[in-house]
């Protein structure tokens, strides 16, 4: 479904991704691990189409189509979803209005009619319960005054509303306590489906106890240095990134609460 070939990308002239190769099939869950600064988040941002990053060479195709030539919003409408590591606030725009605009933009793209306010409200209430967010959050400004955990749950809520083809989760576990991690993981697990791929970016292996990946890739200095199955993450936890000859500011990849 998603095919990344020799992808190079830089920000402000500095090369961050130095030849990424990755194949993801529908129904699979891939985890990208790696120390800070390895390029994990850059990969997520580049796939979603953040203009701040420049793709210098390589290709990315989704369902056989060139993803890189599409604008951010076109990629989103084709089913690329990014759960942000640090979701930004949009003061005064209610979460409800934001999500409804988003859902209707997608529906419009698919040639479907817009959802009216009542239908939408019903769906939003149900999904907000699924991620344990008080429906009162729907009326608040987008991420406005949300705690870190609330922001992350809000991101997963949006993924559940939009039902993307490719869900990219950027450090969705960071800053979460155990209970919130459980809620978020349940949300992500609910997303797992035969026609959907999930790409999780994480520093810690603890997320993978809750969302068990089919594949684990280790990213270091802009390249995937090792790929394997679930066991690779466990081995990393035990032996640290140093085991692969990777420098890491934080001593081990083990879960640190």
């Amino acid at each position: 479904m998603l095919s990344i070939k020799n992808l190079h990308a830089s920000v402000e002239g500095k090369e961050i991704l130095k030849g990424i190769n990755l194949e993801i099939k529908a129904g699979e869950v891939h985890a990208i691990m790696g120390p800070n600064g390895s390029g994990k988040s850059t990969l997520a941002q580049v796939l979603a189409g953040n203009d701040a990053f420049e793709v210098t060479s390589g290709s990315v195709t989704m369902h056989g189509e060139d993803l890189l030539e599409k604008a951010t919003e076109e990629r989103a409408r084709d089913g690329v979803f990014l759960a942000f590591q640090y979701p930004v606030e949009i003061p005064g725009v209610s979460n409800l209005q934001f999500m409804r605009t988003s859902v209707n933009a997608m529906r419009h793209h698919r040639g479907e009619s817009e959802m009216n306010a009542a239908e939408f409200m019903k769906m939003a209430r149900e999904i907000s319960k699924q991620v344990d967010l008080d429906p009162a959050f729907l009326k608040r400004g987008v991420n406005e005054g949300f705690s870190g955990g609330e922001k992350k749950r809000n991101e997963i809520m949006q993924a559940l509303m939009l039902q993307p083809k490719l869900a990219i989760l950027d450090e969705t576990d960071s800053g979460l306590d155990i209970d919130a991690l459980k809620v978020v993981s349940d949300g992500v697990n609910a997303l797992r489906a035969e026609d959907r791929a999930i790409l999780m970016v994480t520093h810690y292996q603890r997320l993978l106890d809750h969302i068990v990946p089919d594949f684990v890739h280790v990213l270091a200095e802009g390249k995937i240095v090792k790929s394997g199955g679930r066991e690779l993450a466990l081995e990393l936890e035990e032996r640290g990134y140093a085991w692969l000859g990777i420098k890491d500011d934080e001593t081990a990849a083990s879960s640190a609460n």
Partner: peptide
């Protein structure tokens, strides 16, 4: 953020300004 959610730029600006 808006564009990543499929919202075009014109709509996004007007939504942000209205907010």
């Amino acid at each position: 953020l808006c564009r990543q959610r499929g919202i075009d730029m014109e709509r996004a600006v007007s939504m942000i300004v209205n907010g």
